[in-house]
Design a protein around this nucleic acid. Structure first.
Lengths: 219, 219
DNA sequence: CAATCATTCTATCAATTCATTGAATGATAG
DNA sequence: CTATCATTCAATGAATTGATAGAATGATTG
């Protein structure tokens, strides 16, 4: 006999799979492109074995699937909605947990000190794009950019920022984005570019959120 | 120095709070009305002490707050969006976990055997209501009904179903709803009413989902 | 088909979570 | 102001989770 509690227990199992910071990091990465275990382990700062275990855990919860490509196992999210789920979790946490607010404030503290420019909201970005006043800068690695990006975005991976400045306009405001709200790449880009005199702000969200909202993407 | 990982760890803490079947049951109950510890413990089949501990856990995660009313502590959800969050978790789990599908199928197996009538979707219900062809039956306890219900719904708590049959129309289809998709109250109501010859189906969701979707509610 | 590479599996230990028990706290009623 | 009621706190033991190391598997390369 199945009870309601059995269902809730199974549901809880899925929630528990989200209940680990390393696994959330893996999911954020997987929200960009499907990726091999080794690459995932590197970006999440885990040993291969450990990353593999976490990925198994996510797999048992139905959040990711894997297929083999040559010697590598390629993992990907099973469902677009996982991005929305994480996004909602983030919103709820930021609204109701003081600790969360404190950490977010801290992470972006130097930026604020630096001129108190708020991150650009989705609506604001949409307005800026359609008026043609804003240039979009994608600072993720090329591979992630290739798999999908915001329309008309210019890709300059963080590692090559200083080499490719000629691609950036001087006359328009630049909005930089990366993997998501907590991704530090765009944050670093804004810092460096400000020092070089560019008018630049950070997009509040990232590519996966944009896509999950049903907005147009290019690849 | 705050890193992105600190943020993800804190986020994970919130997800972990959702990672227990009993706590999900508590949240489902709290999605109806704010409630005392004792009542919560009873509906979730927990000892008072254990329920209290789980509630502390939810509180630390910022998902519920408590205030004192006389001798009792009254808990409530901190945020409307928690209902949406749980609903999305459920959708992702049902789509991607075979185990989940199996359990849902099992829980409603006898209903299906009984005539293979699918649960009523939100859109279908909206259509039925506006055409006036459907009568709405709320089978939750009176207290929950009073705190908020679907417009024009008739409240017959499960315990009194047989006593209050005169309130139900014979000439229209009845749609019964309760606390949510996994709540068994409406399911039981449908079973009993079918045996009595009523035309009755179950609403796929419950009051909290309806409200969270921004649809009108009465109280 | 032997060597190599990418990943998974197994075992182990430390840390965390959960349920239970009984004592402690805080508010109300007499 | 003491007795009672509702809840929380603290301590315990069992079960689960997470990290590590090393062996095992499965696919490719020469």
């Amino acid at each position: 006999m199945t009870s309601q509690q059995d269902l809730l227990d199974t549901l809880a199992q899925v929630a528990r799979a989200l209940g680990n910071g390393h696994r959330l990091a893996l999911l954020e990465r997987l929200a960009q492109v499907e990726t091999s275990v080794e690459t995932l382990a590197n970006t999440a700062n885990l040993t291969i074995g450990n990353a593999s275990q976490h990925l198994q855990h996510l797999r048992r919860a139905g959040l990711v699937t894997a297929h083999r490509s040559g010697k590598q196992m390629i993992y990907r999210l099973t469902d677009e909605r996982i991005v929305t789920l994480l996004s909602l979790l983030r919103q709820v946490a930021e609204t109701n947990l003081a600790e969360m607010e404190r950490l977010v404030g801290q992470l972006f503290a130097d930026e604020d000190a630096n001129g108190a420019l708020e991150a650009v909201s989705r609506d604001e970005l949409l307005a800026g794009i359609s008026s043609g006043k804003v240039a979009l800068l994608d600072v993720r690695p090329e591979e992630e950019f290739e798999a999908g990006h915001l329309p008309k975005a210019i890709n300059i991976p963080m590692a090559q920022l200083e080499n490719m400045l000629d691609k950036l306009p001087r006359d328009r405001e630049i909005v930089a984005y990366c993997r998501g709200p907590y991704c530090v790449l765009s944050h670093e880009a804004v810092q460096r570019l400000r020092q070089l005199g560019y008018r630049v702000r950070r997009f509040q969200e990232g590519y996966p959120e944009w896509k999950a909202a049903g907005l147009p993407v290019a690849s």
